[in-house]
Design a protein around this nucleic acid. Structure first.
Length: 203
DNA sequence: CTACGGATTTTCT
DNA sequence: GAAAATCCGTAGT
């Protein structure tokens, strides 16, 4: 028996070495994993946004803007870019494209999968069974929410998803249909705010 | 279901 | 000093 049904496979460097739009679509249906204290917290990626870098007025790296915050996006693909937003929440991005090309994919939504008890504690400070339907619905359907559920903070910034305890896994899931829509909360981005660079799995 | 205001603090000007 | 790739509670449809 050389073949096995075990299809869980950590995505490798080559997977991330493409433009943010292509990477966005390829990340749908994959599993974001954070191993915390030996426990595997994970969720299926269901919604993402592409930030195309230098030419993209919505990107933190627009016009080659280079600061200590944006520096991770200029690095090697397959690393994390985590930043604090509105003083309270974290956003997790995957660095895309070749080194020096500051593109990234924002993970906007996951469906929690493993270790739901610990994730419920992190997200709501309650047991999983005590969550109401509203809380279950809103468990991971936002960039700040999924970071809370997976215990992702600035400590996880600049990690290599190819070698650290934060990574993305292919479990062989197939995605039926991908919807493209406008990105969220980028009113400052002028014409770029209308680009259809948000992608999610059709339900 | 949608709409609104407040929370909170890093980052950059 | 202002803005920010958000979330939550409350109020209204």
């Amino acid at each position: 028996m050389l073949e096995t049904n075990e299809v869980f496979k950590r995505l490798d460097r080559e997977f991330y070495n493409k433009n943010a739009i292509d990477l966005s679509k390829d990340l749908l249906g994959k599993y974001l994993v954070h191993v915390v204290k030996g426990k595997k917290l994970s969720g299926k990626i269901t919604e993402v946004e592409a930030y195309m870098g230098v030419q993209d007025k919505a990107s933190h790296a627009y016009n080659n803007k280079r600061t200590s915050r944006t520096e991770p996006m200029y690095g090697i693909p397959g690393h994390s870019y985590v930043y604090l937003i509105y003083g309270m929440y974290y956003c997790f991005n995957v660095v895309a494209a070749e080194e020096g090309n500051p593109q990234a994919v924002l993970i906007r939504s996951i469906e929690p999968e493993e270790n739901l008890e610990l994730m419920a504690e992190l997200r709501y400070g309650k047991t999983y069974n005590s969550l109401n339907n509203y809380q279950l619905k809103n468990f991971g359907n936002g960039p700040g929410k999924l970071c809370k559920a997976l215990s992702i903070t600035k400590e996880q910034n600049t990690l290599d998803l190819c070698s650290s305890n934060l990574y993305i896994e292919d479990r062989g899931d197939t995605v039926e249909q991908i919807i493209a829509d406008k990105r969220i909360n980028i009113d400052y981005a002028e014409e770029a705010k209308d680009y259809l660079w948000r992608f999610y799995i059709h339900k």
